[in-house]
């Protein structure tokens, strides 16, 4: 759609509010929900990928050196990665305003 979500009128909506563009859910910034975020200590990380496997949002990926990081556009700060990290490499930090 050409208009941004907050300028759409009821007449702009497709019938039944059908979304005609596949994959548009990726535009939804679930990172807005976050009050905490994960931080990796690369000295403890063994690149096992447990955080990547357990992330319910699928927002954790490897960087060029093979360490893991979260895409903060989507990361909701749920803390599951820190809970599952068996080497204790992930700490959860408070998001500050």
């Amino acid at each position: 759609m050409d208009k941004s979500e907050d300028s759409l009128t009821w007449k702009d909506l497709e019938i039944g509010c059908v979304v005609t563009e596949p994959g548009s859910a990726s535009e939804y910034k679930t990172g807005d929900w976050r009050s905490q975020r994960p931080a990796w200590d690369t000295s403890k990380c063994v690149k096992c990928g447990m955080c990547y496997i357990f992330c319910p949002e699928g927002c954790i990926h490897q960087d060029s050196e093979g360490y893991f990081e979260a895409d903060l556009y989507y990361c909701k700060g749920c803390g599951i990665c820190a809970r599952e990290c068996w080497t204790g490499a992930i700490t959860i930090l408070e998001e500050e305003e």
């Binding site: 009821w10 039944g16 548009s24 859910a25």
Partner: peptide, 14 residues
């Protein structure tokens, strides 16, 4: 197409 997507407050009323 996607049917039955959720609607945040910004669009539900519409």
């Amino acid at each position: 197409v996607t049917m039955g997507a959720f609607a945040p407050p910004v669009i539900y009323t519409e």
